[in-house]
Write a protein that binds this DNA or RNA. Structure first.
Lengths: 189, 189
DNA sequence: GAGCGCATGTAAAGGGTTACATGATTCT
DNA sequence: AGAATCATGTAACCCTTTACATGCGCTC
């Protein structure tokens, strides 16, 4: 359950409404932690109930902005400091790989091509963002720096998966006698 | 909802009971797709209800082994062939990176060290598995080859995250004036 | 004044986790 | 005989997704 802490973290940057948070979750964290508005509104109500956030202001069409409280800020920091990191890696691409042996060779090749294209494109997009950050186009404050670090992780992971898909295409492991006879693959960049 | 297809995929290798599947999900897919036994038993009941699997045999202490049906096999293959891959990347490490700016410098350094150690160790373990596979110690059939490909993805992703954590430790982005002034980082292996 | 985007929510159904419960077999 | 482990399930709770519902304010 990290939606709770994700919301607190975003609110630590400044007051925001449920609508804002839904948009920012989608844009900034969407590929890492999807969250739809119903859950966000529900969680905001719970957080307000627990005194971790409070209503900051009322705006135009029923808009309600929340502000993080001292208790709330302490809670995010506690969460970040506590080492209990869940290292589960929920990525469908990896799950599917276990079942490649069930696929027709041509289907598999098409799949790997598409995957590689996707990860290469994503890595490229992230690199462009990173470049903009490095040129200071998004500010140089702590948040911008943290975002830069997060983007770097995204670049490296997407690169890794792109290179994996390329490797899998090239060694064509499911239709040849590659394994059990050939030397282990080199781990190039 | 991929537990359904994960179960079908495992059953495509041969009959198994809910208990078996829970163990295999934990061991083989646990770091990628966690699944607890209550959900597995429930899903098996649903799959049997839909005619995608059927009871294969009854064993010792109430053991019920299931077998995949032709419909079930067709359904996994359909799923694998359909290109609708969800590229969401649910990894808590990445989520936390967005909030690094809320951490004390020493806490952050300790966190990055621990993360790097974890990913390096995991990559090492996977490399050992991969070596065993390459020596043919786990057979050379289609399943073993698919497993090898999946492990390769794990190695590359864990390496990527280890190298990211090392990079973040070294550039110390949250306590220095690295960004907005320095040249972009090199993307070494 | 028509239409779009803002903004909040409820409802229903399903997915996932944790705790509880039970009994059978095998091992020592 | 006692302990460990095999094996299946139910119950409660929470998280997540999708669909439905509503109304305000701005722009054209």
């Amino acid at each position: 359950m990290s939606l709770r802490h994700g919301l607190l973290g975003l609110l630590a940057e400044g007051p925001a409404s449920g609508y804002d948070l839904a948009r920012r979750f989608q844009e900034a964290l969407g590929s890492v932690w999807p969250a739809q508005h119903p859950r966000i509104y529900a969680e905001l109500a719970r957080l307000a109930d627990g005194g971790l956030i409070e209503v900051d202001s009322h705006g135009p069409r029923g808009r309600k902005a929340y502000r993080i409280t001292d208790d709330g800020l302490a809670e995010v920091k506690r969460w970040l400091a506590a080492g209990e990191v869940d290292h589960t890696f929920r990525v469908e691409t990896l799950l599917r790989a276990y079942f490649f042996w069930l696929m027709e060779p041509e289907t598999l090749r098409a799949h790997l091509r598409a995957e590689r294209a996707f990860y290469e494109e994503t890595a490229g997009t992230l690199r462009a963002y990173a470049g903009a950050k490095d040129r200071g186009e998004w500010g140089t404050g702590p948040q911008a720096r943290a975002m830069r670090v997060a983007i770097e992780a995204g670049i490296r992971v997407n690169d890794a998966l792109a290179s994996w898909a390329r490797w899998a295409e090239e060694t064509d492991p499911m239709s040849s006698e590659t394994f059990g006879t050939a030397p282990p693959p080199e781990h190039e960049a």
